[in-house]
Amino acid sequence: MTASAEQTARVALVTGASRGIGKAIAAGLAAAGYTVVGTATTQAGADAIGAMLAGQGGGVVMDVSDAESVTAAMATIQAEYGAPLVLVNNAGITRDNIMLRMKAEEWDAVINTNLNALFRVTRACLKGMTKARWGRIINITSVVGTMGNAGQANYAAAKGGAEGFTRALAREVGSRAITVNAVAPGFIQTDMTEALPEAQRDNLLSQIPLGRLGQVEEIASAVTWLASDGAGYVTGTTVHVNGGMFTG
């Protein structure tokens, strides 16, 4: 796919881009021609993103769970790169526990980083998109937000919430040619799934019609498509990328 000139000029912001799915999304958008800004919670992480993007954007320190950090990072991004017209809300954490054992801190941390962050970062980017009368907001959710998963009540609540947010915001900003969508990965090969015991892994695979875990690049390609001009009529929806383990 050749990038349009407009696409090349666009700044794409990807939160949580130092590893896993976020890293692949940042790389995918850079390959598609965008100027990509990736965020990480540490300077080392931001530097690594900068090295990966090799001049086609850079890394910025941002803790999406902290309002002040978001404000400061957004000011830096605005000054150095201009207003992001593509936003990928990817940063997320898990604090798995069964409900009977779940601590308030585990609940709060997951809701704050995975859901409240959408409020902070999206709000900070919306003015620029409104002004440009063009924008793409892509929220990375999870199949767990729709299916649920034992031990992940906090995560499922945050991801389900993010999909509701996606639908509501899509209605709000559609008149400005800003689209808002979610990409819901199933089980993707990352450090997290790598650590699973073999029995649990086999059990997982038996529930996936395609019989394998997904690759991070397969999430990135869905995101790159949603960001493109070609996906301009798609809004308010969730694109499931899960090997068929859940078919809405």
């Binding site: 003015k127 409104t130 002004k131 709000e172 900003v173 008149s175 400005r176």
Partner: peptide
């Protein structure tokens, strides 16, 4: 939305 844009 128009009123917000107007303020901007």
């Amino acid at each position: 939305l128009d009123t917000v844009e107007l303020v901007m």
